Simulated scan of single mutants.
Amino acid sequence: MSAAPLSAPAAAAAPSVQALRLGYAGLIPFFTGALLVWLVRADTLPYVTLALATYAAVILSFLGGIHWGIGFRDGTPGLFSWGVVPSLVAWVAVMMPPNAGLVISGAMLVGCYLVDRRVYPRHGLSAWLTLRFRLTAVASLSCFIGAAGA
């Protein structure tokens, strides 16, 4: 029995108001963590940098998971392989000293966006790229600022 050929995916609607609000709210831990790195006492700095680094790791894992969802929907096997890369990189970054690990996480956030710029249009998700760019810019910048203060 052969599988039916996949048709081209329909273009997804632009992000809803709820998606926009949740996306921007998801930046609060990034912004707050980067700010706190520069404001807290030295004895609390390890907790702040760990919080920022682990949140970045969670978000990177989420971004990889999106590719699994697209792969499930469209049957594109290469997306599954890429989907695990952000989680693995994030895991390594969390285990590193914060001044290095946060740079790795920030760079991986940018890398995920660059991959998404190629993948999303092929799967009818171009309408999400503006939001993805904005979220990536603030999140990666927060990681870099946090790394500088660690």
Rank of each mutant, 00 (worst) to 15 (best):
P5H: 10
V110P: 00
M95E: 10
A56F: 03
V103E: 00
G23N: 12
V119I: 14
A57D: 08
A4L: 15
P9A: 05
L36H: 11
Y55C: 01
A51R: 04
A34S: 05
A19Y: 04
D43K: 03
M108H: 05
R21Y: 06
L36F: 07
G111K: 09
L45H: 08
A3E: 14
P9H: 14
R117I: 09
W82K: 04
L88G: 07
T130C: 00
L27F: 10
I145K: 00
V138W: 05
Y24W: 15
Y55L: 00
V84A: 08
F80E: 01
A127K: 06
L125G: 02
G71F: 08
P29S: 09
L88Y: 04
L60C: 07
F62N: 00
A25L: 15
V17M: 09
D43E: 15
A148D: 09
G23F: 12
G106W: 03
L88K: 01
W68A: 06
A56Q: 02
W82E: 03
L109H: 03
L20Q: 10
S142L: 03
Y47G: 09
P77D: 01
L129R: 02
L109S: 04
M96E: 13
L27M: 12
C143N: 04
F144S: 00
L22S: 09
A14C: 09
L102K: 02
H67C: 10
L63P: 03
V37C: 15
G64A: 02
T130E: 06
L35Y: 03
G83P: 06
M96I: 07
A14V: 05
G69M: 06
A10R: 14
M1E: 13
P9G: 07
T54G: 01
A10Y: 03
A57F: 11
T49K: 06
W91M: 13
G83D: 11
A4S: 12
C143A: 13
M108S: 11
